[in-house]
Amino acid sequence: MMESFTALHGLVAPLDRANVDTDQIIPKQFLKSIKRTGFGANLFDAWRYLDEGRPAKSDAGRPLNPDFVLNQPRYQGASILLARKNFGCGSSREHAPWALAEYGFRALIAPSYADIFFNNCCKNGLLPVTLTEAEVDRLFHEVAAFPGFRLVVDLEKQTVATPDGGKVMRFDIDPFRKYCLVNGLDDIGLTLRHADKIRAFEERRRFEQPWLFG
């Protein structure tokens, strides 16, 4: 079971650059782990720290890069990451959403995402919200202008709103993804409800294209 996602009221942190790739989100040296946890401290490692991060070493006491946005005091505790287009491009590493989630993010807001990354987020209860470029642009201005800027992301209503409800933006999501996220469902369990169908499909395929089953 993954954590279910209904509504989130959270502090917003802005990462104002386009095409942030998964190599930046979690650099390769941390992919050597055989666990699903322990990636949060190395999220955006090369941007966040001034020295080079090493796997299986403590990150305590490493020098932080004061210019990196997530190191600024006003964004501590952020649970919503505001990003630019094509966020999460590149490698298929699911360590990227694992790192984002473990750091504390529960939702992302961007004009677009890379396909594999988008999928990987949904499998981990990390909601990738897609808004228009204009809406995202406006949010970047508001985050910069108002310290402590928060948003309410409501998956059931499919809206992003300012806490006072003054501004409400709608977003789309596939109904099936929404169903899985809202209920925190393990989709392997859901798929196995169709085990008979899979078996029947497989048998027909084995008969028609036996060379695939050598």
């Binding site: 699911e94 990987n120 392997i188 899979i198």
Partner: peptide, 17 residues
């Protein structure tokens, strides 16, 4: 390409969503 959750899904069900 797929993520690790999907790797588990394929291993367990021979299918992907």
């Amino acid at each position: 390409g797929i993520g690790t959750s999907e790797v588990e899904h394929v291993l367990s069900t021979q299918c992907l969503l």
